[in-house]
Design a protein around this nucleic acid. Sequence first.
DNA 1: CGGGCGGCCTGGAGGC
DNA 2: TGCCTCCAGGCCGCCC
Length: 274
Amino acid sequence: MPELPEIEVLRRSLAPRLTGRRIERVEVFAPALREPLDRRALSRRLAGRAVTALRRRSKYLLIDVEGGSTLVVHLGMSGRLTLVPAATPREPHEHLAFQLDRGERLRLRDPRRFGVAFAAATAGLETDPHFAHLGPEPLDPPLDGAALAAIATGLSAPVKAFLMDASRLVGVGNIYATEALFRAGIHPARSVARISSGRWARLAAAVVEVLEQAIRAGGTTLNDFTDGAGNEGYFQVDLAVYGRAGEPCPRCAAPVRRLVQSNRSSFYCPRCQR
DNA sequence: CGGGCGGCCTGGAGGC
DNA sequence: TGCCTCCAGGCCGCCC
């Protein structure tokens, strides 16, 4: 669920409250999320250091600290990173926490443990295995049709799978790929080898537009997502087709259909999307 | 190398 | 009411 807009909303909500705060102590409560939690590296790189900047790459939140280290957090499916008073009791599935100066705590809750958290050197982070294979950011600079078509050159995958492939383009998951394809009027199963330049332009614009609108709406909260202060997003009310099988298409009123592609649900309007 | 698919994990929803 | 099954999906690894 957390895709680019959710992580960007999280980054913006935490940046003013976290920048300049000192991490006094690191607490690791679980042996592993999707990967083992390295207690020693987290403490050695982060304890005693003040936060200097919050950045985002793909769906990863990067928290830079003094001394040239970065805390990398991925929320997986169900992760939630929130800033609370230090005295707040531990919540269920709170696997990692950072005691900060001024009596606050940054805590990571992740019931499904699909997330990732680790500390590494800031310099050269782009060559870390988590980042080395990633494709370009869709908003920075805003994606255009020619760039998107160039990325797809020589491929034949369904366009939905292509949009969600982080080695091609980062930040777009199931919800926003589904919504961008609806806005562009393209069927999710269409091969990228059979998309005209005009449709690539529409699709690129739709991806940029839906991501930017979702950021402005505070992200999409279906089950778990909140920003760093615990606020839910409200873009879910603007979803045109995602999760709406059987409901009328907002453009033409034809019933929205559900399609399973590589074990993932897609939703589309059979009349508007070809 | 491209592309399809299973597995990881838990909570919530739905069926009987 | 309670139990069971299924499903949510980002990402990786395996396979052809």
